[in-house]
C-alpha cells in the first residue's frame, strides 16, 4: 500500500514539478523560452568536461575486472568474509558495487536467475543492489564536472557508508526473512 503510494508519487512528481516551475516563472513575468535557452547553454560543456575523468576511472576499473585481478581479490577475501557469516557467493557483488554499477547489476541478475528471487541469496543481493550507490562513479562524475582532482576525505566517508549498508543489509535480511531460508 505504502509502496504503491510512493511509486505513484515518483511517476507524477517530475511532470508536475516542471509544470509548477513554468507557472511560477510565468507569474514572475520571466521570459520562459529565453531563460530556458540561457540555462541550457552550458549543458554540452558540462557533459563533455566529465569525459577525461570518467575515462580514467572506468578504464582502471575495467582493467582490474577483465584481467581477473578482481576474482583473485574475492578469492583471498572469502575466508575473511566467511568469518562474519557473509555468503561467499555474494562477495563479487559486494566488491563490484562501489566500482561499477553495470557489472554489479550483472552479478545480481545472475544470482537472482540461478538461486531464485525469493531465496535467501536472491533477497540479500536484491537489498545490496538497491541500497548502495556506485560510489566511485558518482565521485568521479560529480568532481569531474567541476574539474576537481583532489577528493580529500570524500572517498573515506563514501566507502564507510557502503560498508555499513552492506553489513546492515545482511543483518536486516537475516532478521526479516530468516537466515538461509
Amino acid at each position: 500500500m505504502l509502496y504503491a503510494i510512493i511509486t505513484e508519487i515518483s511517476r507524477w512528481i517530475i511532470p508536475l514539478a516542471i509544470l509548477f516551475i513554468l507557472f511560477a516563472a510565468v507569474i514572475k513575468k520571466v521570459k520562459v523560452f529565453e531563460v530556458f535557452i540561457e540555462g541550457a547553454q552550458e549543458g554540452f560543456t558540462t557533459a563533455i568536461k566529465t569525459i577525461p575523468y570518467l575515462v580514467a576511472m572506468l578504464m582502471a576499473i575495467n582493467i582490474f575486472r577483465a584481467t581477473g585481478a578482481m576474482e583473485l581479490l574475492v578469492h583471498n577475501l572469502s575466508s575473511f568474509f566467511d568469518y562474519f557469516c557473509f555468503p561467499v557467493e555474494l562477495l563479487p557483488h559486494a566488491i563490484m558495487r562501489p566500482l561499477s554499477g553495470g557489472a554489479a547489476l550483472g552479478v545480481a541478475t545472475n544470482i537472482i536467475a540461478t538461486h531464485g528471487p525469493d531465496s535467501y541469496l536472491g533477497r540479500l543481493v536484491s537489498t545490496m543492489q538497491g541500497s548502495t550507490d556506485t560510489t566511485f562513479y558518482v565521485l568521479t562524475l560529480y568532481f569531474g564536472s567541476v574539474g576537481i582532482t583532489r577528493y580529500r576525505y570524500a572517498v573515506i566517508s563514501g566507502l564507510a557508508a557502503d560498508f555499513t549498508t552492506l553489513a546492515a543489509s545482511v543483518f536486516i535480511v537475516n532478521k526479516v526473512f530468516g537466515a538461509g531460508s
Partner: peptide, 16 residues
Amino acid sequence: ITFWLGIMKLAEAAGL
C-alpha cells in the same frame, strides 16, 4: 543535463 539546466534556470529565475 541540457534539459535540466534549462528547467533549473527557470526555477531559479522564478525564485523557487
